[in-house]
Design a protein around this nucleic acid. Structure first.
Lengths: 200, 200
DNA sequence: ATTATCTATAGATCTATAGATAATGC
DNA sequence: ATTATCTATAGATCTATAGATAATGC
């Protein structure tokens, strides 16, 4: 049971870390703030994760385990695009998680940031997964003459970019609706739908 | 001439601040690092901008003055989309600037960040500008049945999202090429270009 | 007078180490 | 023995204030 309780503690700690990073980013996060949230002293926290960076790494690994990054790589074939739309919808209900990752992504482009390699690797993977999804449903040629790979880069960009706009202005930006707009753009081969106004 | 030299100093300081933020983000930036770059003591720097936050605000205001954010609002009508493509190309030659703004955008979604309102306002403006550009060139209906406003949200998302992917992996991600892919997607009304392989 | 800089320094934090104490599990 | 926590604290930073000194512009 000691082991079990220790695992619980670690889970609590990672959840608290996620929250604090959402609020302050990694550089702005302090061990003290995380410790306070789980009812430990700052030094007590360091018993579980010996450095601040170890804590971040643990958060990222943990996420990687649950969150496949919106892509496939589960050995079950590519995700259906429709499911990606649902994933974005789901994310819209978890602003704290989205905020954590958006804050980390932003920081990660700065020098010597401990999450940089994580994101760099993850994006290669996610682009490949998205390309597989697009290929499975649209074949080799997409509107605009795009290949699945090129469309995948755009799709990832849309997902990330929408998150920032949505976090900054949740009342104005409809993140899941916008993402579905993009999927429609990739599906469309006929130009605008000109179904007239429905009278009645 | 004193006034002139003072202006020069301020310009130098803002440039140095931009660099330091690119490297460390705002929270990670220190007055000492900025001061060192312009050959002043940290306290000497505070003579020009009395607090760290004032320095950030000055950087943002300065950017706002030169960079219209890729949009119009210059009283000269909307930007042609083709010119936006060129802007992205230009940005690809200024990784430091892109990195500064990407780092700030990421941080800005965290609590009490002094750039948050700036970005929030700026994005409303940029979306409106983009919508005007799209409307001018494509009219009311775009592929997928999108309105110019909905397409504008996607366009902004693509620009931001591509910046992160490009900063993390400049050798793999062709930012300007990808952005032009997106423009093609918005232009396309006919499905994929199926010009066969050119033999020879 | 005003502007430009500097040195000294107060006051706050922050991370991480050292070492003690209590509880748990063989 | 190992695990879980705590107190004390070293050592680094960081921002911002106070106050001095020198140079510049009426």
């Amino acid at each position: 049971m000691a082991r079990a309780r220790s695992e619980e503690r670690r889970t609590e700690i990672l959840r608290a870390t996620l929250e604090v990073i959402a609020e302050r980013g990694y550089r702005g996060a302090t061990l003290g703030a995380v410790a306070e949230r789980v009812g430990l002293s700052q030094q007590g926290l360091l018993h579980y994760y010996p450095t601040k960076e170890a804590l971040l790494v643990a958060v990222l690994e943990d996420r990687d385990r649950w969150d496949t990054g919106g892509g496939g790589s589960r050995g079950e074939g590519p995700w259906p695009l429709e499911l990606l739309g649902s994933l974005v919808e789901y994310n819209a209900m978890r602003p704290a998680i989205v905020q954590t990752f958006s804050a980390l992504l932003g920081e990660s482009v700065t020098e010597e940031h401990p999450a940089r390699e994580f994101f760099s690797l993850r994006y290669s993977q996610v682009r490949a997964d998205m390309a597989a999804s697009l290929r499975a449903e649209h074949g080799e040629e997409l509107p605009g003459g795009l290949t699945p790979e090129r469309a995948a880069t755009l799709m990832v960009a849309v997902m990330d970019g929408l998150q920032y706009q949505w976090l900054l202005d949740p009342g104005t930006v409809d993140m899941p609706g916008s993402f579905r707009d993009f999927l429609r753009l990739l599906r469309d081969r006929t130009g605008p739908d000109v179904s007239g106004p429905s009278p009645g």
